[in-house]
């Protein structure tokens, strides 16, 4: 039933994500009415906009299952039901894991829909790339976005939803700024791996960043569980 709770917590956030995707596809279609995104600069802008959407989703969807989260807006002070949650015969590990998994699945579904939409709605992109590269692009997006998402999960264990959202935005903004200013961030540059270094644009998989992202996911998740277990609510 924790899945049910998580679903009720996130369904409107997912709906918001769907709205973002629709907005993205509509605006991209209006920029190239025949779906003819073809020129490298156009594809670049296209992927860049998609990365922003993925980053927004990884800011909106995280949760740790302990503090009460409103369905859509981030509201301060709605933490009263924590005691009810913690009085359930469920370990804190399970509370965190289930909620993190739901958000992660929804993020993955959104990224899947985004990449499928990009591929099937824009013939120009199909002409300029291959299904293999698109699939690799999807996988890189999934792994890198998961890293951003799990940083959010980690923050949720000790910050309220509103503060956590701001922190995530500042963190990702700083990451984006650093990525632009210091092109030699290498494997640490998750945003660049999702954009310029993605298989769709570079033709190669940024393996080091993928490995780094996997490490971030593991560390952030373990950290979140440890904090949830250790913290006195």
């Amino acid at each position: 039933m924790l899945w049910y709770k998580g679903w009720l917590e996130t369904r409107f956030k997912l709906l918001f994500g769907c709205g973002l995707l629709v907005f993205f596809f509509v605006s991209m279609s209006s920029m190239s009415p025949s779906g003819g995104v073809r020129a490298p600069a156009q594809i670049n802008a296209f992927v860049s906009a998609a990365v922003i959407i993925v980053a927004m989703l990884s800011i909106v969807l995280p949760g740790a299952g302990i503090a009460t989260q409103p369905s859509l807006q981030a509201t301060k002070g709605l933490h009263g039901s924590m005691l009810f949650t913690l009085s359930l015969p469920v370990s804190r590990l399970r509370l965190v894991a289930v909620r993190a998994a739901i958000g992660c699945l929804e993020l993955a579904a959104s990224i899947g829909a985004l990449c499928c939409g990009m591929w099937f709605l824009f013939p120009g992109l199909r002409a300029a790339s291959t299904p293999k590269l698109m699939l690799l692009h999807l996988l890189v997006q999934l792994v890198c976005a998961s890293a951003l998402y799990f940083v959010g999960v980690f923050l949720t264990t000790f910050l309220d939803d509103q503060l956590r959202t701001w922190c995530s935005m500042i963190l990702f903004g700083t990451l984006g700024w650093l990525s632009k200013r210091t092109p030699k961030m290498g494997a640490l540059d998750i945003l660049r791996a999702m954009h310029e270094n993605s298989p769709l644009l570079s033709g190669a998989v940024p393996w080091l960043t993928v490995a780094f992202s996997c490490a971030v996911v593991a560390i952030a998740f373990i950290g979140a569980v440890k904090i949830a277990q250790w913290r006195e609510y």
């Binding site: 039901s81 005691l83 015969p89």
Partner: peptide
Amino acid sequence: KIRRRIGFVTEDKELYPY
């Protein structure tokens, strides 16, 4: 295991708003 055998009413009476 203990919590499985306990009924608890919290001080703040807050439940999930959704």
